[in-house]
């Protein structure tokens, strides 16, 4: 099959475009502009507009001459303020403290790069396995309410169909009012077929039909939307388990099943619990981090990767159809923390 967003990470260093275009493009744009690092640009721009400008904060912090308790406290606050969470934050600063001792670091500004490394080291973003599938794939997109599942489904569908894949969508959210209509509208805009049942239909039955249709039409990629469900509802998680079972059985080797968990970058420490619960129910293969717009700093993925072995596959911003990129831990850390680009900012 295809290479996903083939060109993204190579051209990253020369990116200078001002990402003013927050406009939501609704029309399918058959010739998308250069698939640039629009997501990372937006993330950076957002960060600079944010009230808690992490980079500015850290610039101040690392400008100090001395590495003392006050400095550590400021670093801790900056990380916690970015939703990194207490446990991972303490662990990061513990590593830094140790490095200061063993390597005899005296200059506070030397800590900046170290911090960037500590952060990116913790995030597994190796999504190649998820993205560059050789054979046919079935993506089951899951998550709590309001994280952006349906929009993510549409974005993935667009990327894939533009790169020449035959894509089919399954309207597996039969619960929320008008969720089926929402996906159908996307299907029309993208020129991609949608398999749907009536509202309140059994979602496993939708998958059953969608897989049958995918086989009959020899589809490359089937992407299924699901209802948002809070991880605290056992019956809803059970429903999801069943959907996975049905999908595996019906696929019967036709395509690889990959479960993608959508997490909202605005989420706090609850995101870790979400990841744990969904992973326990349906074996999450990768995470899509949505709404990474810079006001939300997405630090929760550091906690998640620190404590679980799930890669972050994509990240997205807003409702613009092209704003979906493979997740890149180094770019993320660089945008978030600044990693030594003292003068840039």
């Amino acid at each position: 099959m295809r290479k996903w967003f083939g060109k993204s990470s190579d051209e990253s260093s020369t990116e200078e475009q001002a990402p003013q275009d927050e406009v939501v493009s609704i029309e399918p744009d058959p010739e998308p502009q250069e698939e640039t690092r629009s997501v990372w640009d937006k993330f950076r721009t957002g960060l600079s507009k944010s009230r808690d400008n992490l980079r500015e904060q850290l610039t101040e912090t690392f400008r100090r001459s001395e590495i003392d308790e006050d400095l550590w406290e400021e670093v801790e606050e900056a990380l916690i303020g970015a939703d990194v969470g207490v446990e991972s934050t303490m662990d990061i600063t513990a590593h830094l403290r140790k490095a200061v001792k063993t390597e005899g670091i005296k200059d506070a500004s030397d800590l900046w790069d170290l911090l960037g490394q500590e952060v990116s080291r913790r995030i597994s973003g190796s999504a190649t396995e998820i993205l560059n599938q050789e054979g046919k794939v079935f993506y089951l997109v899951v998550g709590v309410n309001g994280t952006g599942k349906t929009t993510s489904v549409a974005k993935i569908a667009r990327k894939l169909s533009l790169s020449g894949n035959k894509v089919l969508l399954a309207a597996g959210d039969t619960y929320r009012a008008a969720a089926i209509e929402q996906l159908k509208i996307w299907g029309e805009r993208l020129g991609v077929d949608v398999i749907a049942h009536q509202r309140d239909a059994n979602p496993s039955a939708v998958l059953f039909d969608a897989i049958a249709a995918a086989k009959a039409r020899e589809v490359d990629t089937l992407i299924a939307d699901t209802s948002g469900r809070l991880h605290t509802y056992e019956n809803l998680m059970g429903e999801l388990e069943k959907m996975r079972r049905v999908a595996e059985r019906e696929l019967d080797g036709y395509a690889d099943l990959k479960v993608l968990l959508v997490i909202d970058a605005t989420t706090g420490q609850n995101g870790l619990i979400q990841a744990k619960q969904f992973a326990a129910a349906v074996e999450v293969d990768a995470i899509i981090l949505t709404k990474l717009d810079g006001t939300a700093k997405g630090g929760i993925v550091i906690s998640i990767c620190d404590q679980m072995d799930i890669p972050i596959a994509f990240t997205g911003v807003g409702e613009g159809m092209d704003d979906l990129e493979p997740f890149d831990p180094a770019l993320f850390a660089e945008a978030l923390i600044g990693v030594g680009n003292h003068d840039d900012f």
Binding site: S50, D83, D264, T266, T267, G271, K297, G299
Partner: peptide, 15 residues
């Protein structure tokens, strides 16, 4: 506001 919102909840409310 989503009750699961992290540190940003304050900034967004103020904005």
């Amino acid at each position: 506001v989503d009750a699961m919102t992290g540190q940003e909840s304050v900034n967004l409310a103020v904005a």
